Simulated assay, not measured.
Amino acid sequence: MTRIAVVFGLIMIPIVVGLVGGLAAPRAARLLPPAAATVLLTTFAVTVSLGTETGLSYSAYLSTVAVFPAAHPSDWSIPVLRAMLPVPSIVGLAVGALALVLLGRAGVHLIRVVMAARRTTAAVRAFPAVGELAVVADDDAHAYAVPGRHRRVVVSTGMLRLLSGPQRRALLAHEQAHLRHHHHRYAQLTRLAAAASPPAAMVTRAVDHAIERWADAAAVRAVGDPSTVAQALGLAALARPAVPPHLLGAAHDHVVDRVQDLLEPPARRTWAGVLLTVATLVCWASTVAVVLYLHGIVEVSEAATGG
């Protein structure tokens, strides 16, 4: 039972750390500089996902050796494995089923994202563009960034009429920052991690917030006035822009909080970044430990058969 407790404890560390980190993620997204928050939170979510899936998959594989002997190496001693890792086969099957379901969710999510991105890119390529800017004749106000080989900032004539000259520059600078810094990669990596590990799902909105704050900061540097950026965000949000869910738009998320941050910048707290880094390292350490521990059990079983 001691070995089971050790394995179970190591597997649970990424899950527990992911849940605690997910609760703290929204605060970290505001206390850290936006670029640092985006990178650290994305890394944390991916680490939690990999740690959770690795622990579940490896332990399930070892504990089902008696049920599926043909799927395991022939030089493994089943009695030794069952003695050193006395997990009931039904538990191993349940854990394996959970790991497969989570992997399946991640696969389905990835396919949906790729298909949606292809459809959007094909549609946007038909828009007349000047450089990376495509203006579409539409009375509805919307603006968003389309990443990829034919990347574009798409803005409607309705949005352009809604804003003043400086506000337009702020909006376009915001969307161009999404493309320049490849923000879609952070957003989609976090969502993929969330599909593979539910604890990582709590980090998704925090990463979205950090990404938008990153682009807001770029817009402030472009126009030199935070209030202009805040006004552009407010007007765009009031127009209730329709943005495809897999794309990034200036008025798509956390607008009230972002306007407040622009007008009254929150104090930076380096301890938030330190805690996120430590939590990420703890998850990596527990993942490596569970792999090494289970690998040691496998080596003992091989030695028992002379393999």
Rank of each mutant, 00 (worst) to 15 (best):
I4Q: 14
L10R: 13
M12I: 06
I13W: 03
G18V: 10
L23G: 15
A24D: 10
A24M: 14
A28S: 12
A35L: 12
A36F: 00
A36Q: 14
A36W: 07
L41R: 05
T42A: 09
T43W: 07
A45E: 10
Y58W: 05
L62Q: 11
L62V: 07
T64I: 02
V65Y: 05
H72Y: 01
H72M: 03
I78Y: 07
P79K: 11
L81G: 04
G96L: 01
G104Y: 04
A106H: 02
H109V: 00
V113M: 09
V114T: 12
A117Q: 14
T121K: 06
T121A: 15
A122D: 15
A129M: 10
A134R: 09
V136T: 12
D138G: 00
D140S: 10
D140N: 10
A141C: 06
Y144D: 08
Y144S: 03
G148I: 08
R152A: 05
G158V: 03
G158L: 03
G158Y: 07
L160N: 05
S164Y: 01
H174V: 01
Y186M: 08
L192K: 07
A193K: 11
A194Y: 02
V203N: 08
D208L: 03
R213N: 07
A217C: 01
R221W: 00
D225H: 04
S227I: 01
A230D: 01
A230G: 01
A230T: 05
A232H: 03
L235D: 11
L235Q: 14
A239H: 05
A239G: 05
R240G: 01
V243C: 06
P245Y: 11
H246Q: 13
A251T: 06
D261E: 14
D261Y: 02
L263P: 02
E264W: 07
R269H: 13
T270N: 13
W271M: 14
V274W: 13
L276R: 11
V282E: 10
A285E: 12
V288M: 10
V290Y: 09
L292R: 15
G296R: 09
I297F: 04
V298Q: 15
V300C: 00
